[in-house]
């Protein structure tokens, strides 16, 4: 089969072939970035000058407690789940317990104006769902859980 005009010919060395396509994509990405900066940059800088650094700060009404609380809880949840899984490996028990605590904590973080009824719901949900999920996945489907 013809290899076509000279300027289209190309050969890729196998040992370096893992870089060929990533280089092309990185190149396109950078080109687009430059284009975006050129087209949007001036307007952005103008707005920044007008509004000062204030516009980069979170908008008023940003709920710091719930936002960073969620992030923190998720990180703690994942770390704890991984950590406790070494005590009872391949049983999913670590998942079960950390999920119960995590769900209760996240719900309590999110709930507005807790009442007895809401708290009962949270308790039922936080214990019930991980329990059902854990039982169904580990026993019935034999999934590996942390």
């Amino acid at each position: 089969m013809s290899r076509g005009p000279e300027f289209l010919r190309l050969s890729i060395e196998f040992d370096r072939s893992h870089l060929f396509f990533p280089y092309i994509v990185t190149g396109i990405l950078l080109a687009l970035l430059v284009l975006i900066a050129a087209l949007r940059g001036p307007a952005f800088i103008a707005r920044l000058r007008a509004g000062g650094v204030g516009m980069l700060l979170p908008a008023p009404g940003f709920d710091h407690v719930r936002f960073f609380g969620s992030l923190g809880l998720i990180v703690v949840y994942f770390v704890a789940m991984d950590f406790f899984s070494d005590f009872a490996p391949n049983t999913g028990l670590s998942f079960l317990f950390t999920s119960i605590v995590f769900m209760a904590a996240l719900s309590l973080l999110y709930v507005h104006g807790p009442t007895r009824r809401k708290l009962t719901l949270i308790a039922a949900c936080s214990v019930g769902l991980p329990l059902v999920a854990w039982y169904a996945f580990t026993t019935f489907f034999n999934l590996t859980l942390p």
Binding site: F97, I100, A104, A105, S126, V127, P130, L131
Partner: peptide
């Protein structure tokens, strides 16, 4: 929370 843990 305590209740949850105990039950679990």
């Amino acid at each position: 929370l305590g209740m949850c843990l105990a039950l679990g």
